[in-house]
């Protein structure tokens, strides 16, 4: 079973277009998928789940769409906070540095993080206003500020300066809608991740699709760059 699963929630716009609905209807429909996946991942024993909700590049979208998206996120947080807390999900938000994020949303997000900070069942990281490169640059800055000598900078020490350094490497990335891109998502953490690209659009993504992806992951052999023997078989013993 992968320890850390990440989802790039792609295809909301196309889902809406197929139904001749405004793009925002796709975002609205995505909420059900998100809740379903959180619950399915938790009961399948995944302890770290990351969702790519909003990238630093998404600010380029039309202002109206961004505005509605922010409202939807806020509504979803308020609606599901008690349930997430009751299920022992610790919620974190990665990124979150743009002043354009409405302050009431920031308040709700802070409240959600405070509320669930002691939970240990599963850690849900929502990448919101996130950019993988930005995180790496921030880490480099923080490293320089601590005046670490060059020869002491290793992958491990560097990773300590990333936001939420306790986050383990991502084992499996699911990108829905068949698109095959990284899109600046948790660049450092996905270094050795397995990728699956189901054709289904995100609003239609359900627990069964997640199980299929987990199954596909189990059948793969992870070699971490080695050619002689599989370092880790993710096979049937797990």
């Amino acid at each position: 079973m992968p320890r850390h699963v990440a989802c790039v929630m792609d295809g909301n716009g196309r889902w809406a277009a197929q139904r001749s609905l405004p793009r925002t209807a796709g975002h609205e429909a995505a909420e059900t998928a998100v809740i379903d996946v959180i619950e399915a991942a938790r009961s399948a024993g995944v302890t770290w789940l990351s969702l790519y909700a909003f990238s630093t590049e998404n600010w380029r979208r039309p202002a109206g769409e961004v505005d509605i998206l922010m409202r939807l996120v806020r509504r979803a947080i308020r609606k599901h906070a008690p349930a997430l807390h009751a299920r022992g999900v610790r919620c974190r938000f990665l990124g979150m540095s743009d002043p354009r994020i409405p302050s009431r949303l920031v308040q709700d997000i802070t409240d959600l993080m405070t509320l669930t900070s002691d939970n240990r069942q599963m850690t849900l990281t929502v990448a919101f206003d996130h950019g993988g490169r930005r995180d790496i640059v921030q880490a480099a800055r923080s490293l320089i500020r601590t005046a670490t000598p060059a020869e002491q900078v290793t992958e491990a020490t560097f990773a300590q300066h990333l936001p939420y350094p306790d986050t383990p490497d991502v084992d499996l990335v699911i990108r829905t809608s068949g698109e095959q891109r990284i899109s600046n998502f948790m660049l450092w953490q996905v270094a050795y991740a397995e990728w699956v690209f189901p054709q289904v659009l995100w609003p239609d993504f359900r627990a069964t699709h997640l199980w299929e992806c987990l199954d596909a992951y189990r059948r793969r052999q992870r070699r971490f760059g080695d050619v002689r023997r599989p370092t880790t078989t993710t096979g049937e013993e797990s």
Partner: peptide, 17 residues
């Protein structure tokens, strides 16, 4: 945490920022 929960479950004030 209790205060956070309280704020989250009480009706949201309007969106004006």
């Amino acid at each position: 945490q209790a205060a956070a929960l309280f704020r989250l479950v009480t009706p949201a004030p309007d969106e004006d920022d």
